[in-house]
Design a protein around this nucleic acid. Sequence first.
DNA 1: GTATCTGTTATACATTTAATATAACAGATA
DNA 2: TATCTGTTATATTAAATGTATAACAGATAC
Lengths: 131, 131
Amino acid sequence: MILQLDLESETPIYMQIKQQIMEGIALRSLVPGEPLPSVRSLAADLGINMHTVNKAYKLLKQDGYILIHRQKGVVVHPDGVPPADAEFLQGLQGDLRPLITEAVCRGMEKEQFIKKCKDIFAQFERERGNE
Amino acid sequence: MILQLDLESETPIYMQIKQQIMEGIALRSLVPGEPLPSVRSLAADLGINMHTVNKAYKLLKQDGYILIHRQKGVVVHPDGVPPADAEFLQGLQGDLRPLITEAVCRGMEKEQFIKKCKDIFAQFERERGNE
DNA sequence: GTATCTGTTATACATTTAATATAACAGATA
DNA sequence: TATCTGTTATATTAAATGTATAACAGATAC
């Protein structure tokens, strides 16, 4: 589990941590039940504060990505990530709409946009196939 | 040009203004050359501060969506919005990746995700057809 | 010519968010 | 007992957000 932080990014550090752990799960480089470093050790490795890592873990826990075992510590949720429900789909639509709005304004064809999405999906499928 | 602000949203007001004007352009309810309200009058209509509107206009101007005529005031850019360039495509990919990451984690099928995108594109096409 | 409206800029202030720092607590482990 | 765990509390700094007031130069209307 090697995280790459961009301290110059406008994306908050805790959000970068959350997203990269989610990427690890999507790529299956992080599998259900796999232990994650403690908030203190990860913070030390990244050279940041403990609370920043804790905030990322807290959100991941709320979303069902990880589980806190009093014995095993922090682990990727053994039951897998909760499936896409209505709430998630609504949030996804709210996130997609401004992206598509701008694409439409700039005269981007629907097929071109769809291809971009497919390319990203393909990246996940390709890297997942290598394991 | 009627804007609906959600003061409870975590999305900043200036960003809501920017996005809704972009939506107006995408839907062609705002056409090239069409005048927009002044920063002061729009702020008064919305019941917010002038600088909040000014910030939204400033970003829209930077992105090429609007033009500031010393005579005509603020207008939708007569030449249309600049086309999707490499920089835009790279930014789009950076915005899409975390959305697709989460979708993959939740076991969402690629086709299901693509359909969501197509539905949103269809909304724009449908509403643009009514004019 | 005066008054008004325009976009723009400057300054100041309050609130919220992000990140850090230090500390403490209870449970589990060696 | 000592250490590590997640968790919580409090305080501080910095940045982002939104507001408030003011001023400037250019254009417009009377």
